[in-house]
Design a protein around this nucleic acid. Structure first.
Length: 208
DNA sequence: ACCCAGGTGGCCC
DNA sequence: GGGCCACATGGG
């Protein structure tokens, strides 16, 4: 067992099954609607706490708006106001809208989108405004079941702390994790979730 | 009254 | 390729 596999086991032992948001994000078999919710959350959570994202998601849920088709019918300004609590709400409304529009226009639905090759999808997502590497990979991994390892601040911090690498650029770290783990989107989903849970745990420990 | 959070794009060098 | 700023709300 290598360092990466050991780290996964260690985190799993420490935290068990990922909870809260991760109940849905790591769910083994998702409905179309659940996949849409993951994608909406992936945009909203950029540089924002999950609590604030939840307020927005609940806002949308109360109005039965966790639905790409329905969001496409909203005015950009109304969408922005509904997701206000996630911060950067004007930008995120624009990002979310253009992403949903792209999916609707090019694939029709997520079931069809899922059939596309992951490299092609990644390229397409990265061309959209507001979708960088982390968001693109989160969508690929958690909404489309593609085996790409998501790198975020917590992953970089943990990689430094555990001395897993000397290079902490996104692409290098991603490749490193993928090369040292079995190519399995379920493993990647759980592992990344545990890294975030662990990261938040450390932060709150330090603060309080 | 600060300081921070799963990021991204634009502009500069 | 890296440094710096804008984008904004809610909670410690």
């Amino acid at each position: 067992m290598n360092k990466f596999e050991k780290l996964y086991k260690e985190l799993k032992r420490k935290y068990g099954k990922p909870k809260e948001q991760w109940d849905l994000w790591c769910k083994r078999s998702k409905s179309e609607k659940e996949r849409e919710e993951v994608i909406i959350g992936a945009i909203l959570t950029q540089r924002t706490t999950w609590k604030n994202v939840e307020l927005s998601l609940n806002n949308l849920k109360d109005r039965k708006l966790i639905s790409f088709k329905k969001i496409l019918k909203l005015r950009l300004n109304d969408l922005a106001n509904l997701i206000k609590s996630s911060g950067f709400y004007r930008m995120k409304a624009e990002y979310l809208y253009s992403l949903i529009k792209f999916i609707d226009k090019n694939y029709g639905n997520l079931k069809k989108m899922k059939k596309q090759k992951k490299d092609k999808l990644r390229e397409e997502l990265l061309r959209l405004k507001g979708i960088g590497e982390e968001t693109a990979d989160s969508i690929l991994l958690y909404a489309l079941d593609k085996s790409v390892f998501v790198i975020d601040e917590y992953t970089k911090r943990l990689a430094k702390k555990k001395k897993l690498s000397k290079n902490f650029s996104y692409n290098y770290l991603q490749k490193l994790f993928e090369e040292n783990l079995k190519k399995d989107f379920r493993l990647y989903q759980d592992f990344h979730a545990l890294i975030v849970i662990d990261g938040k745990n450390r932060v709150s420990y330090r603060v309080s």
